[in-house]
């Protein structure tokens, strides 16, 4: 991309010099427009940040995003909102589940994707179609049979119903993503490996897995964010307050029939965003690398 656009620049500069006044005007207008749109998009986050420092009475009565009277009280209030357990416990629980989910998804989905994209076996195309169809099934159709099965296993009120399926390649979307990526890797590379004496396992481990890195990173990021934000599965399977995760903890702040504590909720929401933000920040460079190198054309 950049290589192709670079030579075009001098030409454009020449044209710009010819009508520099008009161009400056247009650039200013462009930036004002972009900043305005960005503000609209960022506004809810700014409001959330401001609200987490507002006293309770100011939250619904005032429209300004930043507080009139600053307070830090929302943070300890939110942290200790639930009797017998702090929000820190919820963070630990969420982190454990999310990290396991990422590990399980990467491991199992890359195996499955390798099989679908490289190995020849009977019924491959039918199974692949069946797997893709599972993406279309709404979650609410699956939850009751799943619940009945996990109850038979005695897994209710443990992390297993949330984490175990991830190790069994149930996330069809990630398999699909990796299959498509692996199909783009030239088969000549595997053939070269086979000539050098690699079996299917070693081809996978030494050749395909490193080349699939961008797809793996994309899957890791999405898998982490989705599990971190997932509410319903965690709500249904976790019963004890000590086992609750961050999304369940946040939902406890809003009760239609009781007091809604927006201040502490916003304070904890800000904290809940941090891991996702940091995770994204850490992997973003790799994600961009992945996006550019995915145009690998041998």
């Amino acid at each position: 991309m950049s290589a192709r656009t670079a030579p075009a620049l001098p030409g454009r500069k020449a044209a710009a010099r010819a009508s520099s006044g008009r161009r400056t005007g247009r650039t200013v207008l462009w930036h004002v427009g972009v900043v305005a749109i960005a503000l609209v998009v960022v506004y809810p986050v700014i409001w959330m940040l401001g609200t987490s420092f507002k006293p309770a009475t100011e939250i619904v009565t005032s429209n300004r995003p930043w507080p009139l009277h600053w307070t830090l009280q929302n943070f300890p209030d939110g942290w200790h909102a639930n009797p017998g357990v702090t929000f820190g416990k919820f963070f630990v629980n969420s982190l454990v589940i999310s990290v396991l989910a990422v590990a399980g998804t990467l491991l199992s989905c890359s195996f499955a994707a390798y099989a679908f994209s490289r190995l020849e076996f009977r019924g491959r195309s039918v199974l692949f179609a069946a797997m893709v169809v599972t993406i279309l099934l709404p979650y609410h159709v699956l939850i009751v049979p799943q619940y009945a099965i996990f109850k038979q296993f005695g897994w209710i009120n443990t992390d297993l119903p949330i984490v175990a399926p991830k190790f069994l390649a149930t996330e069809a979307f990630f398999i699909f993503l990796m299959v498509q990526f692996m199909r783009g890797i030239p088969r000549e590379i595997d053939e070269a490996a086979r000539i050098d004496g690699c079996g299917p396992y070693r081809t996978f481990l030494w050749i395909l897995l490193p080349l699939t890195r961008p797809a793996l990173i994309t899957s890791a990021i999405f898998s982490f964010i989705w599990t971190w934000n997932d509410f319903f599965t965690q709500l249904v399977y976790l019963n004890d307050t000590e086992k609750f995760t961050v999304p369940i903890g946040l939902s406890l702040f809003v009760d239609q029939t009781g007091a809604t504590s927006y201040g502490p909720m916003m304070a904890m929401s800000i904290l809940a965003l941090l891991p996702v933000f940091l995770f994204f920040l850490a992997f973003q460079r790799l994600l961009v690398d992945g996006a550019t190198s995915s145009g690998l054309k041998g």
Binding site: F231, V236, D240, I248, S251, D255, Q256, T257, G258
Partner: peptide, 12 residues
């Protein structure tokens, strides 16, 4: 052993 949630999620 108790389990609780807020009204909407609880009923689901």
């Amino acid at each position: 052993s108790t389990q609780y949630a807020t009204f909407g999620p609880y009923n689901q």
